[in-house]
Amino acid sequence: MDIENATAQMRKGVLEFSILSILSRNDAYASDIINELKSVNLIVVEGTLYPLLTRQKNYGLLSYRWEESVKGPPRKYYKITEDGSQFLAKLDESWEQLTKSVNKIRVTSKNAQKNETSDL
């Protein structure tokens, strides 16, 4: 198990969570989602987003409709579904739980480390 793989797994989960969160505010084009994820450094290359969107759509968490754009052909306009909102609520809940738990463990570990170094 290497660090790259571990972070990839983590980021994958976080990304799916973030996509649903963004769409819960309002419907968006894929490019809007990308821009927001990029602005918070959650995504490096855009290509990674599309497989996630399609997979979430296939699970019924999202849907899309074709929206006419100013220039060029119509584009997919994504919208969170009822299932998606419920799923998001559960994710929110477990996220709270997870961050709390993980933070607790991390703080304890850090303190233990500090104590160890001060003991010396």
Partner: peptide
């Protein structure tokens, strides 16, 4: 967009 390898982990 990234190379195909970049997608693979996801």
């Amino acid at each position: 967009m990234g190379m195909a390898e970049d997608f693979s982990e996801e």
